[in-house]
Amino acid sequence: MNVIVCLKQVPGTTDVKVNPQTNTLIRQGVENVINPFDTYALEEGVRTKERYGEGKVTAMSMGPLQAEAVMREAISLGADEAVLLSDKAFAGADTWATAYTLAQAINKIGQHDIIICGRQTIDGDTGQVGPELAEILEIPFVAYVSQIEEIADGRIRVQRMVEEGHEVIESSLPAVITVVKEINVPRLPSLRGITRSKSAPVAIWSAREIGVDESRVGLAGSFTKVIKVFFPQRVSQSEVFQGEMESQVDCLIDRLKDTGLT
């Protein structure tokens, strides 16, 4: 069973602080980690390999060179190999360009039975790379997998979470699945795993090495473009409503609607 797990390096917290003077993110002291949702993907990849024997788990990420640290973390958590796709040409990629780049690297690796992604990242929050990857690779896709029931004879049977329950879905392999956090409890690294990860090689592939068309990766290959980045209006302090009870309740509902919460 050869598994490829796609990971992203993200800031270690969604609770990113904003400097009120400059309106910029405070990055100091926020260490980079494996996107939490991806840790479930990695754990499931490692468990799948352990369950079905042989083969290997390859962790793959696209990002700056400093992402090598999280690739080593992936090795300490059970990945056999790690591939980091890093090139100036990849900068500014939207989800399609990211999926395209990953797809080309996956094609370069060749043999794989299953590709596992987290359901979304905690920084971008789009959840689009997994499904886009499947379409670019032209292989089946199942989202929100909460359990891998069985893998046999080139087919996989999974449970997939939907709003009112779960569906049991069967697919041929290779396939891409995205997993939800209900699927497992990721292991912690072991001392021996950490030691191993320190000396294990992390392959770093550039655009040329994957053989991608540079006009299709990074910002150049992105269909979407960010034209403006700004800070949402913040509620400075507690707002305690005044007036008649009913108008207070109305105020509250308005505020919640403004923030899209109800």
Binding site: L188, S190, L191
Partner: peptide, 17 residues
């Protein structure tokens, strides 16, 4: 145990660290 913490105080010859 999974994190190898029990290996810390065992000699290497006996699967410790």
């Amino acid at each position: 145990a999974d994190a190898d913490m029990f290996r810390v105080f065992i000699p290497e010859e006996y699967e410790g660290l």
